[in-house]
């Protein structure tokens, strides 16, 4: 079977149980630039680079795993991997079930994208099923149109099924830039969630501590900001 996943360091196959356990990093692999599968079929993106750096700093052996977004939290609490690093916004709902490290991306805006800037944002708004954006649209009173994947939400705006799409701005920026003026941002940005953090099990306090410290050290020496700029552009929010 083709390996989707590469271990970061050589696997300690021969080492006994007493040695450091491998930390399995769960991600979605379908949300550029946060995480995606590159041409070579490997997990790539901002979070891949960040995760590898964090593991190096925390002196952990890490491995990458992809999982469907819908079941990403149940599989974490069930122990199939040890962290979620998948562009997951820190929300109260999620915090009740899992723990988050401190955020590694500052609270970022979500934005509307439409075919023209003066579109009526109380019309039909597309969003990906089960995202905070979908919840937000339902609350604004606009007609929510839900699609299983982010790609389909953009396609729905292009073909006129929806008036606009609400999604993470970082996800939308490259799409708008490459659409050649077809797609534009509309309305105000919407701040949602408390930034993006890594999810860990509530009972995994030790692991959370290690990653917290590693993120803090990257914030302190500025490498995190450089990395954010590299992947999200110079205008991205930094710490």
């Amino acid at each position: 079977m083709k390996k989707l996943v590469l271990s970061v360091a050589a696997l300690a196959l021969t080492a006994g149980l007493a040695s450091a356990q491998t930390v399995r990093m769960g991600t979605e692999g379908a949300y550029p630039p946060y995480n995606f599968i590159n041409d070579a079929g490997e997990v790539d993106g901002f979070e891949r680079e960040l995760g590898d750096e964090l593991c190096a700093r925390a002196e952990l052996t890490c491995e990458w795993v992809t999982n469907e977004w819908d079941s990403i939290i149940p599989n974490l609490v069930s122990g199939n991997y040890d962290t979620i690093i998948a562009g997951m916004s820190i929300t109260d709902e999620r915090d009740e079930v899992i723990d988050f490290t401190q955020n590694y991306i500052p609270p970022a805006a979500s934005a509307y994208v439409a075919l023209s800037a003066d579109v009526d944002l109380s019309g039909i708004i597309a969003a990906q099923t089960a995202t905070i954006q979908a919840g937000h649209v339902a609350e604004t009173g606009a007609t929510l149109l839900e699609f299983p994947t982010p790609d389909e939400t953009i396609a729905a705006v292009r073909n006129g099924e929806a008036d606009a799409v609400l999604a993470d701005k970082d996800f939308l920026v490259p799409i708008v830039n490459e659409s050649g003026g077809e797609l534009v941002f509309a309305g105000e940005d919407v701040p949602l969630g408390g930034g993006v953090g890594m999810g860990v099990r509530e009972s995994d306090g030790e692991l959370k501590g290690k990653f917290d410290a590693a993120i803090q050290s990257m914030k302190d020496d500025g490498t995190l900001n450089d990395m954010i700029k590299k992947w999200f552009g110079d205008e991205a929010l930094v710490f």
Binding site: D70, A126, T129, L144
Partner: peptide
């Protein structure tokens, strides 16, 4: 689930089951 978009959160039984599984994180 894999065909048509859901409007105004008016879906079938699986849609709502999925909604709850997503919100409670307990399938």
């Amino acid at each position: 689930f894999s065909g048509f978009p859901t409007t105004k959160q008016q879906g079938d039984a699986l849609y709502y089951a999925n909604y709850f599984a997503d919100k409670t994180f307990n399938p």
